[in-house]
Design a protein around this nucleic acid. Structure first.
Lengths: 130, 130
DNA sequence: AAATATCTTCCACAAATGTAAAATAAAGTA
DNA sequence: TACTTTATTTTACATTTGTGGAAGATATTT
């Protein structure tokens, strides 16, 4: 799969967050609060995402409605797998440990996660492929 | 913290993997197997890492011995937190789900992880900061 | 010492990225 | 219809990244 820059990822994330095809204004509204990009900057990223076949713009009058062409879980899964490989050699526990140490992922989060994984384990034998 | 490019991250990862200060040859030997970088490419990345204060080269005769100046867990934790925020709005479960769906992280891995988290929860009350 | 092999640093250059102004087009409005 | 607003597309340009050759410095061998 084609790769995205961090900025492009943020725009895709905003679009995915919209939950349905969206205009550039709706997308911009979902960008992280601190974001100060000019209108044309956002539009330009959308152009580049179109070139990379990540979105399709549909003309509605003079406006564009953007539809994601890649599923979030597909792209993000691949990106996270690459990240995991590059930084931790694929060791998931190492990543979780590093995240915990930042303090930005709390013990409570981890606990919830553990419960989630336990459930997933119990209910989803289809993931047993190794 | 200063940010690194993917290539620079790979070089840092290789250095961290060495477990101790290392020469550029030792570092290069730890790069992912498929890597075809020319010698001067690796050296150049090390130069850039030096500019960014991620490594310190100590001359040993004409050779350089490179020492990491940033702890792996520090950099990787921050990088992963940023990744998590950018792609999943900070939702760790979403990331784990996406990873599981790639098939590159197996159910067994997840199970092991769940046990690890449970233990961490039991043994490390110092992580209870929220 | 001369020749040879190693190392590192400097330079170069194309491609990608971040950022946005200028140009163009379409739509709404006085 | 002429003016104003809003959208999109083009173009621009500095910075960073990926990649490695050329040049300079040090050591090793004959």
């Amino acid at each position: 799969m084609e790769t995205l820059s961090h900025s492009e990822e943020q725009v895709m994330t905003a679009l995915w967050d919209c939950g349905k095809p969206a205009t550039r204004r709706e997308i911009a509204a979902r960008l992280p609060s601190g974001c100060t990009w000019a209108d044309s900057t956002v539009l330009n990223f959308l152009l580049r995402l179109e070139k990379k076949h990540f979105v399709r713009p549909d003309k509605q009058g003079n406006k564009n409605i953007y539809t994601p062409l890649v599923r979030r879980v597909t792209y993000c899964g691949a990106a996270s797998a690459a990240h995991l490989q590059r930084l931790y050699g694929g060791d998931l526990r190492a990543m979780l440990g590093a995240l915990a140490d930042t303090g930005r992922v709390s013990f409570t989060d981890m606990e919830r996660l553990a419960r989630y994984l336990d459930n997933r384990a119990a209910e989803s034998p289809e993931y047993d492929y190794d």
